[in-house]
Design a protein around this nucleic acid. Structure first.
Length: 271
DNA sequence: ACCCAGGGTAACT
DNA sequence: AGTTACCATGGG
């Protein structure tokens, strides 16, 4: 993997290829915007970036600097993982193999844990376009203006809100859940960063003490926000897929990479 | 007027 | 321990 300055921005090559559009819009994150043919705009940790897919194995970062790319965006995009090797492993299952051939290299994003938690609380019994709408309304109303967009509001900010304040989200019965999560994070009752060092079962159990967080939302938070690559969130699509494809349990080749296997199966189900 | 959407909770058997 | 009505909202 190689990072170089070019006249168009900071070029990243030699990582083994990616399908950036599919990665950003496969339902794991809800805040990316397409701003050009192959260019996308995003914000994490209050930092903006434009990323252009120049070729299968070259991304060009602009609106940022090399230090921020190294420290924020490469980890966010999970660029340090050997995806070709992982895909080869989980392609021991034919349904994943077909999905990977069809969709190219999908990465699991390392989002901010609070954003992942909050986003997937909102996702409950909802569809992706409306989740996207609610999350963006949340940022526009309670986040900070970063120049071209808005940051994800902190747990502290939302903990200071009332249900009435959040009516603008049109999030219905999920509003009290958002507030309970914000209260538990803001007060320090739950330390999301500390969960990274726990085993997956105890981390999940801890997340599930939050109202509106059951097994599925917890597993999404673990996978997309806390680096648990082997978390396997089971929503209604995956439940059907499991029943049809894996009636006797998940293939052993998924072990250690169940999160990515899940995302390929999910992507093919929602297309 | 239904049915569905990256579920969760509480109140039932 | 497993099943079920209900939860708020919007699109098809």
């Amino acid at each position: 993997m190689r990072l170089t300055q070019t006249e168009n921005g900071i070029s990243l090559t030699g990582f083994g290829g990616i399908n950036l559009a599919a990665t950003l819009f496969c339902g794991q994150a809800f805040r990316w915007k397409q701003v050009g043919d192959d260019e996308f705009f995003g914000i994490t940790q209050g930092k903006e970036v434009f990323i252009r897919q120049f070729s299968d194995d070259e991304l060009i970062f602009s609106g940022t600097d090399e230090k921020t790319v190294r420290e924020i965006w490469l980890p966010y995009l999970d660029m340090h993982r050997d995806y070709p090797a992982v895909i080869k492993q989980i392609s021991g299952d034919n349904s994943v193999k077909a999905a990977a051939q069809e969709n190219g290299v999908l990465h699991i994003l390392n989002q901010e844990p609070w954003e992942a938690l909050c986003s997937f609380i909102i996702s409950a019994c909802n569809n992706i376009p409306r989740i996207t709408k609610i999350v963006n309304t949340l940022c526009e109303n309670f986040g900070e203006n970063t120049g071209n967009g808005y940051s994800f509001p902190s747990a502290d900010t939302l903990a200071a809100c009332t249900e009435t304040d959040l009516e603008i989200l049109r999030a219905g019965y999920r509003v009290p859940y958002i507030l309970d999560a914000a209260a538990k994070i803001s007060s320090g009752e739950i330390d999301l960063e500390a969960l990274r060092n726990e085993d997956i079962d105890s981390a999940r159990e801890r997340l599930m003490t939050i109202k509106g967080v059951g097994r599925k939302v917890a597993d999404c938070t673990l996978l997309f926000g806390l680096g648990f690559f082997d978390s396997y969130p089971v929503d209604r699509h995956i439940q059907r897929a499991n029943a049809e494809l894996f009636p006797n349990g998940l293939p052993a080749c998924f072990n250690g990479a169940k999160g990515l296997a899940q995302q390929y199966i999910f992507l093919n189900r929602i297309k």
